[in-house]
Design a protein around this nucleic acid. Sequence first.
DNA 1: CGATTGACGTACG
DNA 2: TCGTACGCCAATC
Length: 116
Amino acid sequence: MTKEKNKLDSFFEQVYAVARLVPKGRVTSYGAIAKYLGTARSSRMVGWAMNGAHHVKPKVPAHRVVNRVGMLTGKHHFGTPTRMKELLEKEGVKVKSDQVKDFKKLFWDPMEELKI
DNA sequence: CGATTGACGTACG
DNA sequence: TCGTACGCCAATC
């Protein structure tokens, strides 16, 4: 405890929470999460938050989070540039040229499930 | 402590 | 319609 800081209230933890809520076989965007958290203008912070997703437990399905166009922009952060694609295809998400197919259909909007 | 970068998004030309 | 510029805010150099 000591100078323990409530990371659960940190913006980063909120991003992780939403990312973990993304159903298998579905994907979402940084902007969607940012917007849900009320920081739509700070969409970059969502990506930055994911930077620490690798050391957060439980595992954060960062591979289900892509940019606004469905491109796997963060694939280089998964150890291998093809890891993200493999993970998505493994869940049933079709990926072509680092871009999610039917992204519009597979898009999972937190506002649709968590809002209200 | 100031400048640059970054897994984005929107605005403007 | 496509390309470029800018803003966000935190972390890193």
